[in-house]
Structures are given as structure tokens and as C-alpha cells.
Design a protein around this nucleic acid. Structure first.
Lengths: 208, 208
DNA sequence: GAACTAACCGTACGATCGATCGTATTGTTT
DNA sequence: AAACAATACGATCGATCGTACGGTTAGTTC
């Protein structure tokens, strides 16, 4: 049904307008939530920031939870566009893995994201609150780590690193990036350097 | 001035009562905040939970920010008692480092802490909000990583591991523990196993 | 052109928030 | 006994929250 809505959106100016408004609101919601959290998202505040009426925002999302889910989805798309897609230019395996980390660093450092990585900011907020928001954030985490693990496996197959437990190392890399994000927020300029050095330590040189 | 207050508390029944009430409230605040965050802490809610009057709680802390700071301080004390102090029984160096990690795991897994590690739950919430709360949480993080680094340096000096960058490895261990805490909240039972295996990988065997 | 739909607005609701009063009670000090 | 200090209470304030309802406008379908 959702696809039907999207499909008709091309020919229906109303749906087109609505989708555009939803996008605008959701993107701003990402900015707000990355700093103040998904719980602090308020319909009235977003409406005021964007010069809309509170009831208009309410009507577009139906409930606060749907607004939060829309923010998670918008953040996911941004992440794919800013981190995952640029790295696709690099060759699969170790080069792409390094490209992913580098674009992630740029993403976390960018002043465009006042609160840093969206997932790092919001997952700790919801990891103990069962519900669709937590599930969506957990899915993002899983997909990201699975992506890292896939490139790690490819790196091993290519002989670019010695054998390793891809899932475990992917977990470690993600842990490293999350910690670096927090360290950056706290003003630790050496965080990026730490990530790069620690990453090298996690990738054993191939023995040949 | 704060010491004077504590000093007189022994002889002043009023201050004694007040200190006891503050402790009770702060401890409950830690439980609430570990699940719902420090922002979600509300004076009225704590008062209702503990059967006190809202204005009573307000009078004891003066402001919401002071209540949050008291929660951070209470969590710090609990952390010292549950994680740091028990590990002091182990010999300095590698044994104590492992003891710290093991007691941390027990601490994070314990159902006594519904939201898991307090710092992991609250630091991402405040890392982009300058102020005394963020500073207090940053101090906790710094002290914890410094403690890990100190034991790492001792382990190197003892010849229990090969040479390493203590500060960097401490950062990695903390990152690992934080990630494991989140993974535990999401229901990943393998998280603990991942921590132990990854930790071994971070501690290079001494060459002799 | 009539019927329908979606976006959007204005208004209003009950609830909760942090904070500030005034006051009673209890304990200490002089 | 008098003055003072700290805990604790009840009541109230203005603000903000999420949600609901009715009405208007613009676009689509028949």
C-alpha cells in the first residue's frame, strides 16, 4: 500500500506536496534528534522551526512515534548516501572497507551533523525501550555491521589480510567508530587518529 | 563548603535526614535515567515513585540540573563499588585488567540495572550539550579510561603483554565494553563472548 | 460539475513539566 | 526561651506536551 502511494505520487500533486513536506520535516527532525534525542522531538517545535502549523505536522505523521520512525528512516537514507554509496567507488575488500571508515569519519566530523552520528546518538536512548523505533535502529546497526563483515570476508578471500572472524572484527570496528563519535563530541581531536591506528591493529597483515 | 556540610551531618539530625533522602532519590534517579535518560528524569515522577511530595524533592535538589548531577554522582559511586573496587583484589597489571573487564560484564549484565551501564546510556544524550552534566560524564569516562590505561602500562612493565600504546588500547577496550552494553540491551547474547575474544586480540602476547 | 481525497490551519483538550510561593515541623544554636 | 536552619508539604503558576476535531483549500476522479 505504501508503494501504491509512492507510485501515484508522481501523478498526484497533493501526494507530491505531502511527500515533500514529510521529507523536509523528517530531515529537520534528524538534526534535532541527533543533538537532543528522539524523545525530545516535539511536533510543535518542528512546526515552529519550519514555519508550519503544529496541526499540519501532526496530520502528516499521525503520531509522534511515526515522526520518530520517519526521522530514523531519513537518517538511514542520509547515511547510505553519505557513507555507504561513496565507498562503492573503491574496490571490494580492504580498499572499500577503508573507504567506508574514511567516509564515516568525514560524516561524523562534518559540522552538517551537529550531534554527530544519528544512530550513536539515538540507539542508547532506545535500546532499553522495546518498540518499532528500537527495532528500526537495531536494523540499521545490523545492516551496517553486516556490510563491514562482508567487506572483511572479501578482504580475507582476496588475501589482503590474514584470516579473521569477520563478524567479530566488524563488531569491533563499529564499536571503535561509535566511541570515536562520542569522543569527537567531547572535543577529543585525537579521536580520528585513534580510529585509524586502531583499525590497522584490527587488520592482521597477510602472511605469505 | 560541601565538606563542611558533610562534617556537620554527623551531629545534625536534619542534615542527616536530608542526606539520606537525597541518596534514596538519587539512587532511584539512576535506575530511571539508565532506561529513559537523564532528560526524562522528572521531579514529579521521582516523588510519586518514592511516595514523597513533588516540592520536597524540588527543595532537596534546587533544580533539575542538580538532580541530574546527583544521579551522575550516585552512578559513579555505584560503579566504583561494583566494578572498580572488587577488581582491586587482583594483582596489578594484566590480572586486574581482566578482573575489571569481568566485573564490568557482570555489572552490565546484572538485572539490577535495567538500562545497563549508566554512562553508556547517558553520555550520548549529553555529549552535544555543553554544561556541568556533560562535564561530569566526561570526567567519568576519562577516569575510567585512565584506570584501564594505568593497568595496561603496568601489564607491559610486568612483561605480561608485549609493548603497546596504553592510551589507545584503553580507548579500544572502553569502546568494546560500551558496544557490548548496547548489544546486550538489544538481546545479543553473544556480546559477552565477543568482548572476551576481542579483548584477547587487543592484548599482544609477550615475545620472549 | 459533483464527489472525493489529501494537505494544512486554528482551536481546544487534558496532562505533565520545572519552578516558586507560603507554611508547618523538626532540630540546632545561642 | 528565642532565633535560626533544614526538611517536607500543599497549592499554584506559566509553558509545553501529544492528540483530537472541524473547517478551508487545492488537486483528482467520476
Amino acid at each position: 500500500m505504501s508503494e501504491q502511494r509512492v507510485a501515484t505520487a508522481a501523478s498526484d500533486g497533493r501526494l507530491l506536496r505531502g511527500a515533500r513536506s514529510r521529507r523536509t520535516i523528517a530531515r529537520h527532525a534528524v538534526d534535532v534528534a541527533s543533538v537532543e534525542g528522539l524523545t525530545a522531538l516535539s511536533i510543535g517545535r518542528l512546526a515552529a522551526d519550519l514555519g508550519m502549523s503544529k496541526s499540519g505536522v501532526q496530520a502528516l505523521f499521525g503520531s509522534k512515534e511515526n515522526l520518530q520512525l520517519a526521522a530514523v528512516e531519513a537518517a538511514r537514507e542520509t547515511f547510505l548516501a553519505e557513507v555507504v554509496r561513496p565507498a562503492a567507488a573503491a574496490a571490494r575488500g580492504l580498499p572499500r572497507l577503508r573507504a567506508l571508515v574514511e567516509s564515516w569519519i568525514a560524516y561524523a566530523e562534518s559540522p552538517l551533523y551537529p550531534g554527530g552520528c544519528f544512530r550513536v546518538a539515538t540507539l542508547p536512548e532506545f535500546d532499553s525501550r522495546p518498540g518499532p523505533v528500537r527495532d528500526a535502529l537495531a536494523r540499521d546497526t545490523h545492516d551496517w555491521q553486516a556490510l563491514l563483515a562482508a567487506e572483511l570476508r572479501r578482504a580475507v578471500a582476496n588475501g589482503e589480510t590474514a584470516d579473521l572472524d569477520a563478524e567479530l572484527v566488524a563488531f569491533q570496528i563499529d564499536a571503535l567508530l561509535c566511541a570515536a563519535n562520542t569522543a569527537l563530541r567531547l572535543g577529543d581531536e585525537r579521536a580520528v587518529d585513534k580510529v585509524r591506528r586502531a583499525l590497522d591493529g584490527l587488520l592482521p597483515v597477510p602472511t605469505r
